[in-house]
Design a protein around this nucleic acid. Structure first.
Lengths: 226, 226
DNA sequence: AGCGTATCTGACGGCCCGTCAGGACGATGC
DNA sequence: GCATCGTCCTGACGGGCCGTCAGATACGCT
């Protein structure tokens, strides 16, 4: 309210500080540096081994400074996760709703979805890894992030499946939410473990095709063309 | 070798103690009590919050006693996981290899597999939860357990898929290992999160049918009967 | 330059972990 | 019954990391 605090570009929401104060220019700089360092370290260090003291040292500051901007390590990663979700959450759902699910073009839409998932998980692997881990561990904050990320896709797939069912195609007599849930679970889990598959000798191309074919057939009940 | 130690029923392997000694009757009793208490507490407490002191107190003993039988909490859970795997690892693979993959009987075999997975994950939910978590976290000990649990199923599905491919059915031109990997990932992940699905309003029956249909179609390329 | 405020930090108490020396218990021989 | 020995258990301790606070520092403004 009455937000006229100089040239402040009105960041998304309020980047609240530790003691309630609103951080200034320099404060936000160090805050960002801490975030960057945390993101960097996540690439090499397991999330459980990510200590506050290490992040602070990497950023050239002291642990106490960290706590001035984040209540704990998880909160910092949550910010990273929020940014990531904000940049790419709706693209998956769009790939589903924009799909005609007919013939070759329909199958290629499924292939595009699988490719997008694999690519997204490849790019944001470290953060997504933490989201999955913390969610499975029962942390509701990360669970919400995960829902935000996958909910649109889930709804889109459910709608597509139901649409096909009405046309006498797809999987008869099965709750479309179950269909969507299983497909989303498959897509997310396989994408998250692509590296593991490759280490096991399975190529990403084959994963992508397999997932695309399963998605296409499960939604439409039609054999993928060629 | 030369195992004639009275009425001792020759337990699997050597239940080694802390300081190298072989534990006696009473020692094994408390060891088992610690395991039982750990298993019990896993049902209510998150694996990360499972402290040694809590297990010891629950078992009516002291933390130091725990360390006499297990180097850490994870090792204790590993024993539980080993027992679980030993009791039910091959049943999944058998359900695949025994399947003819033809007609209604073939589809019912797939349904039986999905049902078995859901049931197994329901029974052993707490321990399997830890296995998944620790594996994702990079713990190689739990990763090995997980491989032992799913490897036979993976190989069986891969063999079945390849068999169908040779007969001109199934998914043409795709590595059967990728097919098996995706299916196993789906089965395991959905089974692990059945409770979450149900909380979301999705019935286990629909999950089972969806998974069974996907498995059957992916392996055979045939539409499930009825 | 001088002052007020935003920002940073060294140092501290608290919690949990894993270990060790020593005490309690139970079986065995007499 | 009781001495003795081996098995088993535990109270107490040092160490590491966490999160906080009062004080020091640096910047912006007049």
């Amino acid at each position: 309210m009455t937000a006229d605090q100089g040239t402040k570009p009105d960041e998304t929401e309020e980047p609240r500080a530790a003691d309630g104060r609103v951080p200034g220019r320099r404060g936000q700089a160090t805050r960002q540096k801490l975030l960057d360092c945390a993101a960097d370290m996540l690439r090499t260090t397991s999330y459980r081994d990510l200590k506050v003291v290490d992040i602070a040292r990497e950023a050239g500051t002291s642990p106490a400074t960290f706590y001035q901007y984040f209540p704990d390590v998880e909160s910092a990663i949550l910010v990273l996760a929020d940014e990531m979700v904000a940049t790419g959450t709706e693209q998956f759902a769009d790939l589903v709703t924009a799909n005609t699910w007919k013939g070759r073009a329909g199958y290629e839409g499924a292939e595009a979805l699988a490719a997008a998932m694999l690519s997204f998980w490849g790019q944001h692997q470290p953060v997504l890894r933490v989201i999955d881990l913390a969610t499975d561990e029962g942390d509701p904050r990360f669970a919400n992030i995960r829902i935000h990320l996958l909910n649109d896709l889930n709804n889109a797939l459910s709608a597509a499946a139901k649409e096909q069912q009405k046309a006498g195609k797809g999987q008869p007599g099965i709750d479309s939410e179950a269909i969507a849930g299983v497909l989303v679970a498959m897509l997310a889990h396989v994408s998250a473990h692509r590296l593991g598959f490759e280490l096991w000798g399975v190529r990403a191309d084959d994963l992508q095709s397999t997932m695309a074919r399963i998605v296409y057939w499960t939604v439409t009940g039609q054999k993928p063309p060629a």
